[in-house]
Design a protein around this nucleic acid. Structure first.
Lengths: 199, 199
DNA sequence: ACCTGAACACCGTTCAAGT
DNA sequence: ACCTGAACACCGTTCAAGT
Protein backbone atom coordinates (compact mmCIF):
# COMPACT_ATOMS: atom_id res chain seq x y z
CA UNK A 1 0.00 0.00 0.00
CA UNK A 2 3.10 2.20 -0.13
CA UNK A 3 2.74 2.27 -3.90
CA UNK A 4 -0.35 4.43 -3.96
CA UNK A 5 -0.41 6.41 -7.20
CA UNK A 6 0.96 9.86 -6.51
CA UNK A 7 -0.66 11.62 -9.45
CA UNK A 8 -3.94 12.76 -8.10
CA UNK A 9 -5.60 14.84 -10.72
CA UNK A 10 -2.79 14.80 -13.24
CA UNK A 11 -2.54 11.18 -14.36
CA UNK A 12 -3.48 12.39 -17.80
CA UNK A 13 -0.44 14.64 -17.97
CA UNK A 14 1.84 11.89 -16.67
CA UNK A 15 0.50 9.42 -19.21
CA UNK A 16 1.07 11.86 -22.06
CA UNK A 17 4.64 12.54 -20.96
CA UNK A 18 5.47 8.86 -20.68
CA UNK A 19 3.73 8.14 -23.97
CA UNK A 20 5.93 10.68 -25.75
CA UNK A 21 9.06 9.00 -24.43
CA UNK A 22 7.67 5.56 -25.31
CA UNK A 23 6.92 6.82 -28.81
CA UNK A 24 10.49 8.03 -29.14
CA UNK A 25 11.78 4.63 -28.03
CA UNK A 26 9.75 2.14 -29.99
CA UNK A 27 7.49 4.00 -32.38
CA UNK A 28 3.71 3.82 -32.57
CA UNK A 29 3.74 0.03 -32.54
CA UNK A 30 5.65 -0.02 -29.28
CA UNK A 31 3.14 2.19 -27.50
CA UNK A 32 1.05 0.10 -25.12
CA UNK A 33 -1.66 1.42 -22.83
CA UNK A 34 -1.04 -1.36 -20.35
CA UNK A 35 2.69 -0.72 -20.21
CA UNK A 36 1.93 2.96 -19.76
CA UNK A 37 -0.35 2.18 -16.83
CA UNK A 38 2.31 -0.07 -15.33
CA UNK A 39 4.94 2.68 -15.51
CA UNK A 40 2.54 5.12 -13.87
CA UNK A 41 1.76 2.67 -11.09
CA UNK A 42 -1.94 2.45 -11.84
CA UNK A 43 -4.17 -0.38 -12.95
CA UNK A 44 -4.47 -1.18 -16.63
CA UNK A 45 -7.99 0.20 -16.72
CA UNK A 46 -7.06 3.58 -15.27
CA UNK A 47 -6.07 5.29 -18.54
CA UNK A 48 -9.63 4.71 -19.67
CA UNK A 49 -10.70 7.53 -17.35
CA UNK A 50 -8.65 10.00 -19.41
CA UNK A 51 -8.57 8.50 -22.90
CA UNK A 52 -11.56 6.57 -24.19
CA UNK A 53 -9.33 4.35 -26.31
CA UNK A 54 -5.83 4.07 -27.72
CA UNK A 55 -6.67 6.31 -30.66
CA UNK A 56 -7.75 9.07 -28.29
CA UNK A 57 -4.31 8.96 -26.69
CA UNK A 58 -2.64 9.09 -30.09
CA UNK A 59 -4.81 12.06 -31.05
CA UNK A 60 -3.89 13.87 -27.86
CA UNK A 61 -0.22 13.20 -28.58
CA UNK A 62 -0.56 14.59 -32.10
CA UNK A 63 -2.27 17.72 -30.84
CA UNK A 64 0.39 18.21 -28.17
CA UNK A 65 3.05 17.68 -30.84
CA UNK A 66 1.62 20.43 -33.02
CA UNK A 67 1.55 22.80 -30.06
CA UNK A 68 5.13 22.04 -29.14
CA UNK A 69 6.36 22.44 -32.71
CA UNK A 70 4.48 25.73 -32.90
CA UNK A 71 6.28 26.91 -29.77
CA UNK A 72 9.64 25.84 -31.21
CA UNK A 73 9.06 27.80 -34.40
CA UNK A 74 7.89 30.86 -32.47
CA UNK A 75 11.07 30.69 -30.41
CA UNK A 76 13.15 30.47 -33.57
CA UNK A 77 11.37 33.50 -34.98
CA UNK A 78 12.13 35.51 -31.87
CA UNK A 79 15.77 35.65 -32.99
CA UNK A 80 16.22 38.92 -34.91
CA UNK A 81 17.44 38.73 -38.48
CA UNK A 82 16.55 39.07 -42.12
CA UNK A 83 13.76 37.03 -43.62
CA UNK A 84 16.39 34.78 -45.15
CA UNK A 85 18.08 34.17 -41.81
CA UNK A 86 14.79 33.55 -40.08
CA UNK A 87 13.66 31.18 -42.79
CA UNK A 88 16.81 29.11 -42.27
CA UNK A 89 16.28 29.07 -38.51
CA UNK A 90 12.66 28.02 -38.86
CA UNK A 91 13.60 25.35 -41.37
CA UNK A 92 16.21 23.92 -39.04
CA UNK A 93 13.83 24.00 -36.08
CA UNK A 94 11.20 22.20 -38.13
CA UNK A 95 13.59 19.51 -39.30
CA UNK A 96 15.17 19.12 -35.87
CA UNK A 97 11.79 18.48 -34.33
CA UNK A 98 10.88 15.98 -37.03
CA UNK A 99 14.07 14.01 -36.49
CA UNK A 100 13.99 14.05 -32.70
CA UNK A 101 10.32 13.04 -32.60
CA UNK A 102 9.95 11.14 -35.85
CA UNK A 103 7.20 8.83 -34.63
CA UNK A 104 5.29 11.76 -33.15
CA UNK A 105 5.64 13.58 -36.47
CA UNK A 106 4.16 10.53 -38.21
CA UNK A 107 1.23 10.73 -35.81
CA UNK A 108 0.76 14.43 -36.52
CA UNK A 109 0.74 13.87 -40.27
CA UNK A 110 -0.94 10.48 -40.34
CA UNK A 111 -3.54 9.89 -43.01
CA UNK A 112 -6.95 10.31 -41.40
CA UNK A 113 -10.11 9.04 -42.98
CA UNK A 114 -12.39 11.22 -40.88
CA UNK A 115 -13.36 14.78 -41.66
CA UNK A 116 -10.75 17.49 -41.19
CA UNK A 117 -12.00 18.98 -37.94
CA UNK A 118 -11.39 18.76 -34.22
CA UNK A 119 -8.57 19.87 -31.97
CA UNK A 120 -5.77 18.30 -34.02
CA UNK A 121 -6.69 20.20 -37.14
CA UNK A 122 -6.98 23.41 -35.17
CA UNK A 123 -3.54 22.86 -33.66
CA UNK A 124 -2.20 22.29 -37.17
CA UNK A 125 -3.80 25.54 -38.31
CA UNK A 126 -2.10 27.40 -35.49
CA UNK A 127 1.20 25.95 -36.66
CA UNK A 128 0.74 27.23 -40.18
CA UNK A 129 -0.33 30.61 -38.87
CA UNK A 130 3.18 31.03 -37.49
CA UNK A 131 4.42 31.22 -41.06
CA UNK A 132 1.74 33.74 -41.92
CA UNK A 133 2.74 36.01 -39.08
CA UNK A 134 6.42 35.74 -39.92
CA UNK A 135 5.76 36.64 -43.54
CA UNK A 136 3.31 39.39 -42.68
CA UNK A 137 5.94 41.05 -40.55
CA UNK A 138 8.32 41.44 -43.47
CA UNK A 139 5.97 41.61 -46.37
CA UNK A 140 4.53 44.64 -48.09
CA UNK A 141 2.16 42.39 -49.92
CA UNK A 142 -1.55 43.15 -49.94
CA UNK A 143 -3.55 40.42 -48.25
CA UNK A 144 -5.75 40.13 -51.30
CA UNK A 145 -2.98 38.51 -53.29
CA UNK A 146 -2.36 34.83 -52.73
CA UNK A 147 1.41 35.06 -53.15
CA UNK A 148 1.95 34.82 -49.44
CA UNK A 149 -0.21 31.72 -49.14
CA UNK A 150 1.55 30.00 -52.02
CA UNK A 151 4.95 30.91 -50.66
CA UNK A 152 4.00 29.53 -47.28
CA UNK A 153 2.76 26.23 -48.73
CA UNK A 154 5.87 25.86 -50.85
CA UNK A 155 8.12 26.47 -47.88
CA UNK A 156 6.14 24.17 -45.59
CA UNK A 157 6.06 21.35 -48.12
CA UNK A 158 9.80 21.57 -48.70
CA UNK A 159 10.60 21.52 -44.99
CA UNK A 160 8.16 18.67 -44.40
CA UNK A 161 9.70 16.68 -47.23
CA UNK A 162 13.23 17.37 -46.03
CA UNK A 163 12.24 16.21 -42.55
CA UNK A 164 10.76 12.99 -43.92
CA UNK A 165 13.79 12.24 -46.08
CA UNK A 166 16.13 12.84 -43.16
CA UNK A 167 14.10 10.95 -40.54
CA UNK A 168 13.85 7.96 -42.87
CA UNK A 169 17.61 8.09 -43.49
CA UNK A 170 17.18 8.63 -47.22
CA UNK A 171 19.48 11.64 -46.83
CA UNK A 172 21.90 12.56 -44.04
CA UNK A 173 22.23 15.68 -41.93
CA UNK A 174 24.69 17.61 -44.14
CA UNK A 175 22.48 16.96 -47.15
CA UNK A 176 19.47 18.18 -45.20
CA UNK A 177 21.26 21.36 -44.16
CA UNK A 178 22.26 22.11 -47.74
CA UNK A 179 18.73 21.29 -48.84
CA UNK A 180 17.26 23.84 -46.43
CA UNK A 181 19.73 26.50 -47.60
CA UNK A 182 19.00 25.77 -51.25
CA UNK A 183 15.27 25.89 -50.64
CA UNK A 184 15.49 29.27 -48.91
CA UNK A 185 17.73 30.65 -51.65
CA UNK A 186 15.54 29.41 -54.47
CA UNK A 187 12.31 30.53 -52.85
CA UNK A 188 13.46 34.02 -51.92
CA UNK A 189 15.07 34.59 -55.31
CA UNK A 190 11.98 33.39 -57.16
CA UNK A 191 9.42 35.57 -58.83
CA UNK A 192 7.03 34.53 -56.06
CA UNK A 193 9.47 35.66 -53.39
CA UNK A 194 10.04 38.93 -55.23
CA UNK A 195 6.32 39.68 -55.40
CA UNK A 196 6.12 38.98 -51.70
CA UNK A 197 8.90 41.30 -50.61
CA UNK A 198 8.51 44.24 -52.93
CA UNK A 199 4.92 43.96 -54.14
CA UNK B 1 -10.77 -30.95 -47.09
CA UNK B 2 -12.22 -29.03 -49.99
CA UNK B 3 -10.58 -25.93 -48.59
CA UNK B 4 -7.05 -27.00 -49.35
CA UNK B 5 -4.97 -23.88 -49.89
CA UNK B 6 -4.65 -23.25 -53.61
CA UNK B 7 -1.48 -21.22 -53.46
CA UNK B 8 1.20 -23.79 -53.73
CA UNK B 9 4.46 -21.98 -54.02
CA UNK B 10 3.10 -18.47 -54.12
CA UNK B 11 1.54 -17.95 -50.72
CA UNK B 12 4.12 -15.22 -50.24
CA UNK B 13 2.80 -13.29 -53.22
CA UNK B 14 -0.79 -13.75 -52.12
CA UNK B 15 0.01 -12.55 -48.61
CA UNK B 16 1.75 -9.44 -49.93
CA UNK B 17 -1.18 -8.61 -52.20
CA UNK B 18 -3.71 -8.98 -49.41
CA UNK B 19 -1.48 -7.06 -47.02
CA UNK B 20 -1.40 -4.10 -49.38
CA UNK B 21 -5.18 -4.01 -49.52
CA UNK B 22 -5.38 -4.42 -45.75
CA UNK B 23 -2.93 -1.56 -45.35
CA UNK B 24 -5.11 0.60 -47.57
CA UNK B 25 -8.17 -0.25 -45.46
CA UNK B 26 -7.02 0.10 -41.91
CA UNK B 27 -3.45 1.38 -41.86
CA UNK B 28 -0.45 -0.28 -40.29
CA UNK B 29 -2.29 -0.84 -37.03
CA UNK B 30 -5.00 -2.77 -38.80
CA UNK B 31 -2.60 -5.18 -40.43
CA UNK B 32 -2.78 -8.55 -38.69
CA UNK B 33 -0.80 -11.63 -39.65
CA UNK B 34 -3.52 -13.91 -38.33
CA UNK B 35 -6.24 -12.12 -40.28
CA UNK B 36 -4.02 -12.34 -43.34
CA UNK B 37 -3.62 -16.09 -42.86
CA UNK B 38 -7.37 -16.45 -42.40
CA UNK B 39 -8.10 -14.64 -45.67
CA UNK B 40 -5.59 -16.83 -47.47
CA UNK B 41 -7.14 -19.97 -46.02
CA UNK B 42 -4.00 -21.13 -44.24
CA UNK B 43 -3.18 -21.66 -40.60
CA UNK B 44 -1.99 -18.72 -38.53
CA UNK B 45 1.52 -20.13 -38.44
CA UNK B 46 1.86 -20.43 -42.19
CA UNK B 47 3.06 -16.86 -42.91
CA UNK B 48 6.04 -17.66 -40.71
CA UNK B 49 7.42 -19.76 -43.57
CA UNK B 50 7.67 -16.64 -45.74
CA UNK B 51 8.16 -13.82 -43.27
CA UNK B 52 10.10 -14.40 -40.07
CA UNK B 53 8.00 -11.84 -38.22
CA UNK B 54 5.57 -8.98 -38.75
CA UNK B 55 8.37 -6.50 -39.36
CA UNK B 56 9.71 -8.65 -42.18
CA UNK B 57 6.32 -8.43 -43.88
CA UNK B 58 6.26 -4.65 -43.41
CA UNK B 59 9.76 -4.42 -44.87
CA UNK B 60 8.75 -6.48 -47.89
CA UNK B 61 5.74 -4.21 -48.37
CA UNK B 62 7.94 -1.12 -48.24
CA UNK B 63 10.35 -2.56 -50.77
CA UNK B 64 7.49 -3.53 -53.08
CA UNK B 65 6.08 -0.03 -52.65
CA UNK B 66 9.32 1.59 -53.76
CA UNK B 67 9.43 -0.65 -56.81
CA UNK B 68 5.85 0.15 -57.76
CA UNK B 69 6.36 3.89 -57.31
CA UNK B 70 9.51 3.64 -59.43
CA UNK B 71 7.49 1.98 -62.18
CA UNK B 72 4.82 4.65 -61.96
CA UNK B 73 7.36 7.44 -62.34
CA UNK B 74 9.07 5.66 -65.24
CA UNK B 75 5.70 5.38 -66.94
CA UNK B 76 5.05 9.08 -66.41
CA UNK B 77 8.44 9.89 -67.91
CA UNK B 78 7.66 7.86 -71.02
CA UNK B 79 5.22 10.60 -72.05
CA UNK B 80 7.12 12.96 -74.38
CA UNK B 81 7.36 16.61 -73.42
CA UNK B 82 9.55 19.37 -72.12
CA UNK B 83 11.35 19.03 -68.81
CA UNK B 84 8.73 21.27 -67.29
CA UNK B 85 5.88 19.12 -68.53
CA UNK B 86 7.60 15.94 -67.41
CA UNK B 87 8.33 17.40 -64.00
CA UNK B 88 4.64 18.15 -63.53
CA UNK B 89 3.69 14.64 -64.61
CA UNK B 90 6.21 13.05 -62.28
CA UNK B 91 5.09 15.27 -59.43
CA UNK B 92 1.48 14.31 -59.95
CA UNK B 93 2.35 10.61 -60.18
CA UNK B 94 4.34 10.87 -56.97
CA UNK B 95 1.56 12.62 -55.09
CA UNK B 96 -1.14 10.34 -56.50
CA UNK B 97 0.71 7.30 -55.27
CA UNK B 98 1.22 8.84 -51.84
CA UNK B 99 -2.46 9.60 -51.48
CA UNK B 100 -3.75 6.27 -52.81
CA UNK B 101 -1.33 4.29 -50.64
CA UNK B 102 -0.76 6.64 -47.74
CA UNK B 103 -0.10 3.93 -45.17
CA UNK B 104 2.29 2.18 -47.53
CA UNK B 105 4.07 5.48 -48.08
CA UNK B 106 4.43 5.83 -44.31
CA UNK B 107 6.01 2.38 -44.26
CA UNK B 108 8.42 3.33 -47.04
CA UNK B 109 9.51 6.47 -45.24
CA UNK B 110 9.25 5.22 -41.67
CA UNK B 111 12.01 6.20 -39.29
CA UNK B 112 14.37 3.26 -38.99
CA UNK B 113 16.86 2.96 -36.18
CA UNK B 114 18.98 0.36 -37.97
CA UNK B 115 21.75 1.09 -40.43
CA UNK B 116 20.79 2.31 -43.90
CA UNK B 117 21.31 -0.87 -45.87
CA UNK B 118 19.39 -3.82 -47.20
CA UNK B 119 16.84 -4.26 -49.97
CA UNK B 120 14.58 -1.38 -48.90
CA UNK B 121 17.35 1.15 -49.12
CA UNK B 122 18.41 -0.21 -52.50
CA UNK B 123 14.85 0.04 -53.77
CA UNK B 124 14.77 3.64 -52.53
CA UNK B 125 18.01 4.35 -54.39
CA UNK B 126 16.51 2.99 -57.60
CA UNK B 127 13.59 5.36 -57.12
CA UNK B 128 15.84 8.39 -56.83
CA UNK B 129 17.84 7.24 -59.85
CA UNK B 130 14.73 7.79 -61.95
CA UNK B 131 15.10 11.50 -61.31
CA UNK B 132 18.78 11.33 -62.25
CA UNK B 133 18.02 9.70 -65.55
CA UNK B 134 15.26 12.15 -66.34
CA UNK B 135 17.51 15.09 -65.63
CA UNK B 136 20.49 13.59 -67.44
CA UNK B 137 18.40 13.23 -70.56
CA UNK B 138 17.73 16.96 -70.77
CA UNK B 139 20.72 18.37 -69.02
CA UNK B 140 23.95 19.60 -70.54
CA UNK B 141 25.44 19.71 -67.08
CA UNK B 142 28.76 18.05 -66.41
CA UNK B 143 28.39 15.19 -63.96
CA UNK B 144 31.16 16.68 -61.82
CA UNK B 145 28.94 19.53 -60.73
CA UNK B 146 26.48 18.84 -57.94
CA UNK B 147 23.76 21.08 -59.33
CA UNK B 148 21.85 18.08 -60.64
CA UNK B 149 21.98 16.34 -57.28
CA UNK B 150 20.81 19.42 -55.42
CA UNK B 151 18.03 20.01 -57.92
CA UNK B 152 16.93 16.42 -57.55
CA UNK B 153 16.84 16.59 -53.74
CA UNK B 154 14.95 19.86 -53.80
CA UNK B 155 12.36 18.45 -56.18
CA UNK B 156 12.04 15.18 -54.28
CA UNK B 157 11.66 16.91 -50.91
CA UNK B 158 8.98 19.24 -52.25
CA UNK B 159 6.98 16.40 -53.79
CA UNK B 160 7.35 14.30 -50.64
CA UNK B 161 6.19 17.19 -48.49
CA UNK B 162 3.26 17.95 -50.77
CA UNK B 163 2.25 14.29 -50.62
CA UNK B 164 2.37 14.28 -46.82
CA UNK B 165 0.38 17.50 -46.51
CA UNK B 166 -2.26 16.17 -48.90
CA UNK B 167 -2.49 12.67 -47.44
CA UNK B 168 -2.88 14.11 -43.95
CA UNK B 169 -5.61 16.47 -45.19
CA UNK B 170 -3.66 19.56 -44.20
CA UNK B 171 -4.19 20.77 -47.77
CA UNK B 172 -6.71 19.67 -50.41
CA UNK B 173 -6.24 18.47 -53.99
CA UNK B 174 -6.50 21.83 -55.76
CA UNK B 175 -3.95 23.29 -53.37
CA UNK B 176 -1.65 20.33 -54.00
CA UNK B 177 -1.95 20.76 -57.77
CA UNK B 178 -1.09 24.44 -57.54
CA UNK B 179 1.73 23.59 -55.18
CA UNK B 180 3.26 21.18 -57.70
CA UNK B 181 2.96 23.75 -60.48
CA UNK B 182 4.53 26.47 -58.32
CA UNK B 183 7.35 24.17 -57.28
CA UNK B 184 8.17 23.28 -60.88
CA UNK B 185 8.02 26.92 -61.95
CA UNK B 186 10.20 28.14 -59.11
CA UNK B 187 12.73 25.36 -59.47
CA UNK B 188 13.14 25.61 -63.24
CA UNK B 189 13.35 29.41 -63.15
CA UNK B 190 15.92 29.36 -60.34
CA UNK B 191 19.62 29.90 -60.72
CA UNK B 192 20.03 26.21 -59.92
CA UNK B 193 17.67 25.23 -62.71
CA UNK B 194 19.44 27.58 -65.07
CA UNK B 195 22.81 26.05 -64.36
CA UNK B 196 21.29 22.66 -64.96
CA UNK B 197 19.78 23.38 -68.33
CA UNK B 198 22.34 25.63 -69.93
CA UNK B 199 25.51 24.88 -68.00
C1' DA C 1 -14.87 11.72 -10.64
C1' DC C 2 -11.47 8.43 -10.73
C1' DC C 3 -9.52 3.94 -10.18
C1' DT C 4 -9.55 -1.41 -9.56
C1' DG C 5 -9.52 -5.98 -11.31
C1' DA C 6 -11.79 -9.82 -13.62
C1' DA C 7 -13.27 -11.12 -18.12
C1' DC C 8 -13.20 -11.47 -23.14
C1' DA C 9 -11.50 -11.65 -27.74
C1' DC C 10 -7.59 -10.83 -30.31
C1' DC C 11 -2.75 -10.69 -31.39
C1' DG C 12 2.56 -12.10 -32.50
C1' DT C 13 5.70 -15.64 -31.73
C1' DT C 14 7.54 -20.22 -30.80
C1' DC C 15 7.85 -24.93 -31.76
C1' DA C 16 7.07 -29.89 -32.14
C1' DA C 17 4.72 -32.41 -35.41
C1' DG C 18 3.08 -33.61 -39.79
C1' DT C 19 3.37 -34.00 -45.30
C1' DA D 1 10.34 -26.96 -47.98
C1' DC D 2 6.10 -25.75 -46.37
C1' DC D 3 2.18 -25.96 -43.40
C1' DT D 4 -0.56 -27.31 -38.97
C1' DG D 5 -2.16 -26.46 -34.38
C1' DA D 6 -1.32 -26.09 -29.45
C1' DA D 7 0.85 -23.09 -26.23
C1' DC D 8 2.43 -18.76 -24.24
C1' DA D 9 2.63 -13.99 -23.09
C1' DC D 10 0.81 -9.80 -24.33
C1' DC D 11 -2.64 -6.54 -25.81
C1' DG D 12 -7.16 -3.25 -26.11
C1' DT D 13 -11.64 -2.93 -24.45
C1' DT D 14 -15.61 -3.54 -21.46
C1' DC D 15 -17.78 -3.25 -17.13
C1' DA D 16 -19.35 -4.04 -12.43
C1' DA D 17 -17.51 -2.69 -8.25
C1' DG D 18 -15.20 0.16 -5.11
C1' DT D 19 -13.61 5.01 -3.02
Amino acid sequence: MASRPFHHGNLRVVLLEQAEAMLREGGVGGLSLRELARQAGVSHGAPRSHFVDRQALLDALAEQGFNRLTDNLRTALRTPGTLEEQARLVGRAYVDFAVHDAALMDLMFAAKQDAPSGPIHEAALRLFQVFDQALARESTQSPADDARERFKLLFTATMQGTATLLASRRIDRPQAEKLIDDAVDVLLASELGGRLLSG
